[in-house]
Simulated assay, not measured.
Amino acid sequence: MSLPTDAVDPLLLQNQLCHSLYSATNALVRAYRPLLEPLDLTYPQYLVMLALWEADGVAIKQLVSKTRLDSGTLTPILKRLEQKELIERRKGETDERQWLMCLTAVGRDLRQQAEDIPHRLWCMADMELEQARALKSAAEELYRQIRAREEQPKTT
């Protein structure tokens, strides 16, 4: 794949896709901060809670896959959510060696308080629905392409 023809200097910061995505991500996380503050959640904790509200009682490996947070990042988040009594670890019924992450009653109830967050963030973004869908689709495609390359066997 070659560089776009309008990219005169490939090392100009203004030509870097990674910089645009990084800046947009930081702005998005900052926008979430005041929305999540009343719930006493950080953005990564919110991602975990979203995953558990979608599917409760899952193994850490499944949370890694769903949230796209590596286990080294996820473990302290889970510990913090346990300290807040939003989740608890339970041994698996079929395999006692496996630990499942489960919502507590408090964690389940928090979902109702979080229901308006996506809408409130949407209002801040002020984008047309089709623009947002196209952006999400492009970001997902970029993620898939990079992950597929990372998972290819290394040849020497």
Rank of each mutant, 00 (worst) to 15 (best):
I60D: 03
E96Q: 13
L13P: 01
E88N: 08
E140M: 07
K154S: 13
V58W: 04
E88T: 11
A134H: 07
P44R: 10
V8I: 15
L78V: 05
D40I: 10
L21Q: 13
L74F: 06
M101T: 09
R89H: 08
R108E: 04
C18E: 10
L41T: 01
K136H: 03
L13T: 08
R144S: 10
A139M: 05
A59H: 11
A139T: 05
L103Q: 06
M101Q: 07
D9N: 15
T42G: 10
K91S: 13
Q16W: 04
N26H: 14
M101G: 02
S71Q: 14
Q113H: 11
N26L: 15
A105C: 06
S2N: 11
Y143L: 09
T156H: 14
T75D: 04
T25L: 14
L41Q: 02
Q145N: 10
Y32V: 02
S20K: 15
V29F: 01
A114K: 04
R144H: 11
V64T: 13
Y143Q: 11
M127F: 05
Q16M: 14
V58K: 13
L35T: 00
M49E: 01
V58D: 05
E151S: 09
C18H: 13
A55E: 11
K136Q: 06
I117K: 03
R111N: 00
E88M: 11
V48M: 00
T155G: 09
R144F: 01
Y43I: 01
S71A: 14
P153D: 14
L135W: 02
L17V: 13
I87M: 04
Q112T: 06
R68H: 10
R89S: 08
E82P: 01
D116I: 03
P44H: 09
K79I: 02
S137H: 07
R147L: 12
G57M: 11
S23G: 09
G72V: 02
L74P: 07
T42L: 15
Q131T: 08
T94I: 07
T73S: 15
S71N: 13
D40E: 15
A27S: 14
K154D: 07
T75H: 12
Q62V: 09
A55K: 14
E88W: 03
L86W: 03
P34F: 05
S23I: 09
L17Q: 12
Y143E: 05
R89W: 05
L63K: 02
R97T: 08
Q16A: 15
S71Y: 12
P153S: 13
Y143A: 06
D70W: 07
V106H: 14
P34R: 05
Q98A: 09
E96P: 08
V58A: 08
L35E: 00
T75N: 12
K84I: 03
L12T: 08
N15R: 09
P34H: 06
R133F: 04
R97V: 00
P38F: 04
H119L: 08
A134Y: 03
